[in-house]
Measured scan of single mutants.
Amino acid sequence: MEVRTIKVFTTVDNINLHTQVVDMSMTYGQQFGPTYLDGADVTKIKPHNSHEGKTFYVLPNDDTLRVEAFEYYHTTDPSFLGRYMSALNHTKKWKYPQVNGLTSIKWADNNCYLATALLTLQQIELKFNPPALQDAYYRARAGEAANFCALILAYCNKTVGELGDVRETMSYLFQHANLDSCKRVLNVVCKTCGQQQTTLKGVEAVMYMGTLSYEQFKKGVQIPCTCGKQATKYLVQQESPFVMMSAPPAQYELKHGTFTCASEYTGNYQCGHYKHITSKETLYCIDGALLTKSSEYKGPITDVFYKENSYTTTIK
């Protein structure tokens, strides 16, 4: 009895394709271990004539594949690729409408935090270190965002349907971005203890939790000093293409032309909904596939993004 075979390709990165001759009487799992086709788990399936010449994702289970996976995804987590594939199996079914010149995501599976993050990423200057993220990001900007969303979920250790947080998501993504040249110098002034300067680099240099107003941050924000008295913390120097200011959701007025974009969060910790506000020729609110415009805006804002380049204080 002759062994019926077909020729397929296996890959971990969709760049390096490895030619395989597979036995049609055995499952993919018996031949390769966990195997995925377009995100779908085909591990328990036997090869079919229609699979001839198709590319299958496999887990990096030998040295060659491990090197290829690390170079593309910059992670050695053995569960990463499987999590990416199972997320992709959902995100490829989502709709990605162009809204006001940006790629958004039609609401499904509690994905409003991903839509808000995706919209924000198209408006701030950011370059990702893992080629996987950078490639998928370019495709997302062009309207094909399924891979990018699935990668975000995998890097953030999230599953489809789980509630997510924009600030946490951005923080994970910033860790995989090139923020080497970003720098922030802060000064804390206390009447009792004097003053202390701190220099922050990388992710810490672009994120701040405690106030939404970048102007206020430049002037000074009140913080408790270690001595128990009130101290003032203010920005001395900022070198970065953008800054992200966050605070627990509270009524906040966004003035046209003073910011790049913002995240609105309605609801409580267990259950809520994100919308995205962007400042173009007027203010726009993007909620999944829905767009509304207004000249002014007041609502429960939790993150505001500002364009920056270089700032030095005039406070002496």
Results as ranks from 00 to 15, higher is better:
residue 108 A to S: 13
residue 22 V to L: 11
residue 163 L to C: 15
residue 282 T to H: 11
residue 106 K to D: 11
residue 308 E to D: 08
residue 150 A to H: 03
residue 135 D to E: 13
residue 154 A to Y: 01
residue 78 P to H: 11
residue 201 K to N: 12
residue 185 V to F: 01
residue 169 T to P: 03
residue 197 Q to W: 06
residue 10 T to Y: 12
residue 69 A to E: 07
residue 195 Q to S: 15
residue 10 T to P: 06
residue 224 P to H: 13
residue 208 Y to I: 12
residue 12 V to K: 07
residue 29 G to H: 08
residue 147 N to D: 14
residue 62 D to R: 08
residue 104 S to H: 05
residue 273 H to Q: 01
residue 169 T to K: 01
residue 226 T to Q: 14
residue 240 S to V: 02
residue 198 T to Y: 14
residue 299 G to S: 02
residue 68 E to H: 07
residue 73 Y to E: 02
residue 229 K to S: 15
residue 64 T to Y: 10
residue 71 E to W: 05
residue 91 T to W: 04
residue 69 A to F: 12
residue 219 K to G: 08
residue 316 K to R: 15
residue 63 D to L: 07
residue 34 P to I: 13
residue 31 Q to A: 14
residue 118 L to R: 04
residue 271 C to D: 01
residue 134 Q to E: 10
residue 242 F to M: 02
residue 189 V to Y: 10
residue 242 F to N: 02
residue 265 Y to C: 02
residue 24 M to A: 15
residue 189 V to S: 10
residue 267 G to K: 08
residue 222 Q to P: 14
residue 257 G to K: 03
residue 205 A to N: 00
residue 122 Q to L: 04
residue 103 T to L: 05
residue 205 A to I: 00
residue 243 V to P: 01
residue 270 Q to H: 10
residue 115 A to N: 06
residue 122 Q to F: 05
residue 70 F to Q: 09
residue 243 V to T: 01
residue 11 T to Q: 06
residue 69 A to K: 00
residue 149 C to M: 10
residue 64 T to Q: 14
residue 2 E to N: 12
residue 314 T to L: 15
residue 232 T to I: 14
residue 77 D to Q: 08
residue 188 V to R: 08
residue 225 C to Y: 00
residue 277 I to V: 12
residue 14 N to G: 15
residue 36 Y to V: 05
residue 55 T to L: 06
residue 237 Q to A: 14
residue 52 E to K: 14
residue 156 C to V: 07
residue 225 C to W: 01
residue 234 Y to T: 09
residue 233 K to G: 10
residue 190 C to M: 01
residue 51 H to I: 05
residue 306 Y to C: 01
residue 186 L to C: 12
residue 223 I to H: 13
residue 226 T to V: 14
residue 271 C to Y: 11
residue 35 T to Q: 05
residue 135 D to K: 09
residue 134 Q to W: 03
residue 25 S to R: 12
residue 213 S to P: 02
residue 135 D to R: 08
residue 298 K to F: 13
residue 241 P to F: 02
residue 167 R to H: 09
residue 207 M to A: 07
residue 180 D to C: 06
residue 151 L to Y: 05
residue 117 A to K: 03
residue 258 T to P: 00
residue 175 Q to V: 04
residue 250 A to T: 14
residue 33 G to I: 04
residue 276 H to A: 00
residue 66 R to N: 11
residue 78 P to D: 15
residue 193 C to E: 03
residue 130 P to H: 03
residue 89 N to R: 15
residue 15 I to H: 14
residue 132 A to W: 05
residue 4 R to G: 13
residue 54 K to L: 15
residue 247 A to N: 06
residue 169 T to M: 06
residue 53 G to A: 14
residue 52 E to W: 11
residue 177 A to P: 02
residue 153 L to G: 02
residue 259 F to R: 00
residue 125 E to P: 11
residue 7 K to W: 09
residue 305 F to D: 07
residue 51 H to M: 08
residue 42 V to A: 10
residue 30 Q to S: 13
residue 73 Y to R: 03
residue 224 P to E: 11
residue 95 K to M: 11
residue 218 K to A: 05
residue 136 A to W: 07
residue 255 K to F: 08
residue 283 L to G: 01
residue 25 S to P: 05
residue 99 V to E: 08
residue 18 H to A: 07
residue 184 R to Q: 06
residue 203 V to D: 05
residue 146 A to H: 08
residue 216 Q to Y: 05
residue 41 D to F: 06
residue 296 E to A: 15
residue 49 N to P: 13
residue 241 P to V: 00
residue 32 F to W: 08
residue 83 R to Y: 04
residue 307 K to H: 12
residue 113 Y to L: 02
residue 137 Y to H: 07
residue 205 A to G: 01
residue 183 K to Q: 15
residue 56 F to I: 09
residue 262 A to K: 00
residue 261 C to K: 03
residue 70 F to K: 10
residue 52 E to A: 14
residue 54 K to V: 12
residue 170 M to R: 01
residue 88 L to V: 07
residue 251 Q to Y: 14
residue 179 L to Y: 01
residue 224 P to V: 15
residue 111 N to G: 00
residue 141 R to P: 03
residue 99 V to L: 13
residue 278 T to Y: 15
residue 87 A to E: 08
residue 19 T to G: 13
residue 32 F to T: 13
residue 289 A to T: 10
residue 21 V to A: 12
residue 246 S to T: 00
residue 153 L to W: 06
residue 69 A to P: 05
residue 221 V to F: 11
residue 292 T to L: 09
residue 171 S to L: 11
residue 265 Y to A: 00
residue 76 T to L: 14
